[in-house]
Write a protein that binds this DNA or RNA. Sequence first.
DNA 1: CATGAATGAGCATTCATTCAT
DNA 2: TATGAATGAATGCTCATTCAT
Lengths: 201, 201, 201, 201
Amino acid sequence: MSTRSAREAALTDAVMTIVAEHGLERVSVREVAGAAGVSIGTVQHYFPTKEQMLAAAYTEAVDRIRARVEALPLGSDAGRNLRSVLRQLLPLDESRRAESRVYLAFAAAAATSASLSEIQQATLTELHTALTDAFGRATGEAWPPSRCRLAAHAVIALVDGLALHAVTTGGWIDTAQLTDAVDLVLDGLLVDTAATPSATA
Amino acid sequence: MSTRSAREAALTDAVMTIVAEHGLERVSVREVAGAAGVSIGTVQHYFPTKEQMLAAAYTEAVDRIRARVEALPLGSDAGRNLRSVLRQLLPLDESRRAESRVYLAFAAAAATSASLSEIQQATLTELHTALTDAFGRATGEAWPPSRCRLAAHAVIALVDGLALHAVTTGGWIDTAQLTDAVDLVLDGLLVDTAATPSATA
Amino acid sequence: MSTRSAREAALTDAVMTIVAEHGLERVSVREVAGAAGVSIGTVQHYFPTKEQMLAAAYTEAVDRIRARVEALPLGSDAGRNLRSVLRQLLPLDESRRAESRVYLAFAAAAATSASLSEIQQATLTELHTALTDAFGRATGEAWPPSRCRLAAHAVIALVDGLALHAVTTGGWIDTAQLTDAVDLVLDGLLVDTAATPSATA
Amino acid sequence: MSTRSAREAALTDAVMTIVAEHGLERVSVREVAGAAGVSIGTVQHYFPTKEQMLAAAYTEAVDRIRARVEALPLGSDAGRNLRSVLRQLLPLDESRRAESRVYLAFAAAAATSASLSEIQQATLTELHTALTDAFGRATGEAWPPSRCRLAAHAVIALVDGLALHAVTTGGWIDTAQLTDAVDLVLDGLLVDTAATPSATA
DNA sequence: CATGAATGAGCATTCATTCAT
DNA sequence: TATGAATGAATGCTCATTCAT
């Protein structure tokens, strides 16, 4: 429960909204205070430095994505489960498009911020572990662990890259192409296993 | 060609260096003037607004990558050519790591800047066209154009996603994993064609 | 005496330490709370306003100097007593150097603060009265009171000025020069009296 | 001759006025800009940091005092010259009272600022040298140089201490006492020489 | 072609203080 | 008695930009 501050949640919310709509460079203490309807001093009562505020917002954004993925109903078909997880990470509707914009902005900032880079690495590691397992199950443990890990690296990069393209261009790639591209790669990876081939290919 | 270009090139160079080392948010007219060893007024003589300066630097960064790709010696093996082009886009050494940092910073900024988004879209379109052709050749024209386009989307996303991961974390993914991941996906995509399977897999 | 005084003393102590080490401008409620190891609210429980806190610290600083002067063992030689009192006010060792830094910082602040100016004036008046008496005794009451008062003014100014020089420069004037300068002036003032001339001149 | 910025002079003037009237802690970039009638940006164009601005103002304040002392008409009576120089350093009228407030504020700040301490030390050194010479002449070279130096230390401390007392209290010491105290000490110092005794003693 | 003076909006941050508990 | 949430004004400073030269 940790009623641990509704205010704090409102602040990270405000940060995410601003990032999604105007980018990280538009995030300022003033802007956040205004968006959350509190005073400047209050923002800095909860987050003494801007870096801490951004780190909290990044963590919250990632937590949200994780919560959505974990809420996914999984079936007995491991290959299908894998597919639905990856699809969940694509910016297929407006809410996930906003999520991707936020994720991408923070990820890019991680290139020059130690605190954000730490979060980014932890996030990727967790997702990578889960997907490595998923590949193991989807291939009936026929693959050596190293190949599972490599495939996990590849598909995370794939969905992150697709999200990057979708978010940084205006409609250059549409939602059908996003899912089809994932299916195409997944079919190729799993073609020589007992996994059910995609029906969309 | 003109003498004017020399100064201008020095300025875009300075921008790229700053972006690679400290990120886009560190780019300021002052910083660029200092790095290029010219006055603050001179910078603004060539680039009246910061946005124009950034657009020029982004264009230059992309041109550099293109020049490197076009300079690649291509052989008769279309699958191998495809592989070497993609490998060229990965941050496999320090100079390409810097390039990726620059590309990524600008791409992320494109999410909220119309002028940068335009450049990003043009860049992706050009690369996509080239890779679509490459897939056509690599599969002996056995694939329908739509499948070639989809595969092109996928592999560009893959390398951009891999670059994203490499650049935004400190050594979370190493250079061998980068090339292996590309090979793994490429092998999967081309497995049912006459294309030569990767020797490194 | 009361248990309340313990905390309060710890707070004025903290203020004096900060002033001695970093100057008055570094004194903030936060800093004092941190240095004293109490909460920020506690500081303001004892000292509702910063001005009250500073006034209390100034008073405490002055009290400490007075206590040290009053603890001096006085002999029958009035001239020698005078000399030893003045010497006690010079920054001759590290602890008195800190004391002088604190005194000086507050004294300078008194130029623009009514409450501090009041304390400063009371302090000077008390010291001036004591030294006027001392001159009376040292000269065997041969001087008119007005001359004693003037001499008292002069020697207080002398030691305060010497302290000012010592504290505001790094080693520009050393401890020997401080005491010698006081002796020189004192010898000059007392030369035509029965007072014992300084042995150090 | 170095029209080197009337603006700059106006800015240091503004700083000195604010310091004289409200103390150093009231000096802010905004306040100075307002007092000088220029924009905030202009202030920081001339003085990139506050510390540089304060250092410039301190230097200017000291230069002004020096100019006034150097403009003093000196006669053949070395003792009288010495007296008139010291008198010039006392806050005997409103303009010199302002000067003293400024000098004292900066001197106190020098206790915790390296850049101000440097200026303070240079100022004292220059004055000390001049007064050491003056004592040499006033005593007909009868004193050893070390005694002249000591006497110079003493009288500078005396006038600085008197200024401190005058400035930090409201009328606790009046102008007559200031000059009389200097005369008293000077008479004492010069009593055993051929120097003319003060007529005011 | 190149400079640098001047501007004012904006930044993150620190601050003393009030108030409910 | 002691706490810390909340506030908003103020701080020094950086910024992109305009303009006269």
